[in-house]
Amino acid sequence: MFELLGIPPQALFGQLLLGLINGSFYALLSLGLAVIFGLLNIINFSHGAQYMMGAFVAWMLMTYAGINYWWALLLVPIIVGASGVVIERLMISRLYHLDHLYGLLLTFGLALIIQGLFRNRFGVSGLPYAIPAELTGAQNLGFMFLPNYRGWVVVASVVVCFGTWFAIERTRLGACLRAATENPTLVGAFGINVPRMITLTYGFGVGLAAFAGVLAAPIYSVNPNMGADLIIVVFAVVVIGGMGSILGAIVTGFGLGIVEGLTKVFYPEGSAVVIFVIMALVLLVKPAGLFGRTA
């Protein structure tokens, strides 16, 4: 019990926790990508930049306006989500009649522009964001110390992910969304405003990324590249889970975070690539992804 294959339990649980934290971000970000892809059929390459914006807007609210972490958690997804709404209305919506590749190129270009602007203004050294006073300290769980803030990140991510899952799979609004994902023309012919739904869905997906950014601000340093580094892994997560599958994105996000953590314990050299190896294997065996529907 105390030693597993010669690994001390502290190291094991420590890496498991780290994996769970990374998984929390993978899950939130791949969930946003999946929601957007489901309805818009666009791979939102700006997602990493919008996550980074979330962290920066939280930092700016704190630094320039004295608005604390808890308010940021509420306000930042709304502010950054609103910027997503503007982007969808002004730009992305003009591309729906073209190949999906154009949406990908547009959002990729936007990501570069956004990151460039932030790099210009704030540099790349990273800005500090303090853990809120209520969540400093740690719990002694007997077998390990759990920092309160890290525990909170996992809880917040689980709650938001499953809240989103519930809203999409179990409510009337979610039923409209699922129907519009399948057949937008028919849903429009029932009198439902599909273009507005698409705009708000994009705003919501971007808001999820920004929420993840606020959660990340006290853990990782707030810097313009934080999203670019993370998003590559998140795309792999989405590919493994299956594009557009809500539950798939959540489960795969947490699961791969844990797998990555375990790899750090048992075979540290492989931890940086394990997700991509899994991605390659999944693509070979089940190209639609673990939870994807093969049409």
């Binding site: 009337r172 039923a175 409209c176 699922r178 129907a179 994902t181 399948e182 057949n183 028919l186 849903v187 029932f190 009198g191 439902i192």
Partner: peptide, 16 residues
């Protein structure tokens, strides 16, 4: 045009 990701009830209640 029955939606496969919706239950019968959800299909029935979809049109506003």
């Amino acid at each position: 045009g029955i939606f496969s990701s919706l239950s019968v009830e959800e299909n029935l209640m979809l049109p506003p």
